[in-house]
């Protein structure tokens, strides 16, 4: 794309269909995981009667495990798509932390959020601060939750199961004991919740205040631009 003084910026196709579907499934699964996970640690008020009349904890745990597998399979797929998808699909996995100029752009974004500058840069993909946040909190947060989650799940499936053999056997002693893994998994949930709050807020804010579309792009896949100057990331 040639950089010219004044040109009409067309919409760019950024988020391919599998990425969009994956994103909304993740959103749904993570919401389910947080709600059911909280209820596993702090169960609903006790119900009376006979045990065979109810299966409340059983269903809550079942939904947690189903949603967890959706996240795991989704995450594996997402890594696969980073290889076969377009260049935007790789962005959150590989922040160019070795490039000083990239850190300069991160700092530029920070200043934008601190309202020290009146206009942000224009990006087709994620802005550098978004890439950094997603890489640290989302990518590594999810890896942490998948590993600790499978270690805890392996305790139930027991010795001989793949979850136990590949996860529980080394992760549980690594943290100390089972209770510690529970605690860290629980703290991980709050990290993800904090990420979600920030993620949704900045998505809405950027949609209104930045120079490109955000929320509609994750539905249609197309990035729209609000002005005709060229974007700061080249594509």
């Amino acid at each position: 794309m040639s950089v010219v003084e004044k040109h009409k910026e067309e919409a760019v196709y950024v988020y391919q269909a599998p990425i969009r579907i994956w994103h909304w499934i993740q959103a749904f699964a993570i919401f389910t995981l947080a709600v059911t996970g909280y209820l596993i640690a702090s169960p609903l008020p006790s119900v009376g009667g006979e045990a065979y009349d109810h299966y409340i904890m059983g269903y809550i745990r079942w939904y947690h495990f189903v949603a967890a597998y959706m996240v795991i399979i989704g995450f594996v797929f997402r890594i696969y798509w980073a290889f076969v998808g377009n260049s935007h699909a790789r962005q959150i996995f590989l922040p160019p932390v070795w490039r000083p100029s990239w850190w300069g752009e991160v700092w530029h974004e920070v200043k934008w959020y601190l309202m020290l500058i009146s206009e942000p840069k224009k990006y087709t993909g994620h802005n550098p601060l978004a890439v950094l946040t997603m890489h640290v909190l989302y990518v590594w947060g999810t890896v942490f939750m998948i590993f600790t989650g499978l270690a805890l799940y392996g305790e139930g499936t027991g010795p001989g199961s793949w979850q136990h053999s590949y996860f529980s056997t080394w992760i549980i002693p690594l943290f100390g004991q089972s209770q510690d893994v529970h605690t860290w998994h629980h703290l991980g949930m709050w990290v993800i919740i904090c990420f979600v709050i920030i993620h949704i807020y900045v998505a809405v804010r950027e949609d209104i205040m930045s120079r490109q579309s955000i929320i509609s792009s994750m539905i249609s896949g197309w990035r729209m631009f609000k002005d005709d100057r060229p974007p700061d990331d080249l594509h």
């Binding site: 909280y38 640690a41 702090s42 959020y113 309202m115 605690t183 629980h186 703290l187 949930m189 709050w190 990290v191 919740i193 904090c194 709050i197 920030i198 807020y201 804010r205 205040m209």
Partner: peptide
């Protein structure tokens, strides 16, 4: 974990609310 997490979420939520307010004013 819940006490720490809720505090963190409240701080983040509060910061977001303030930031949003300032953004609107701006």
């Amino acid at each position: 974990a819940d006490q720490i997490g809720m505090k963190a979420a409240a701080i983040v939520g509060g910061a977001v609310a303030i930031h949003a307010g300032v953004s609107v004013v701006k």
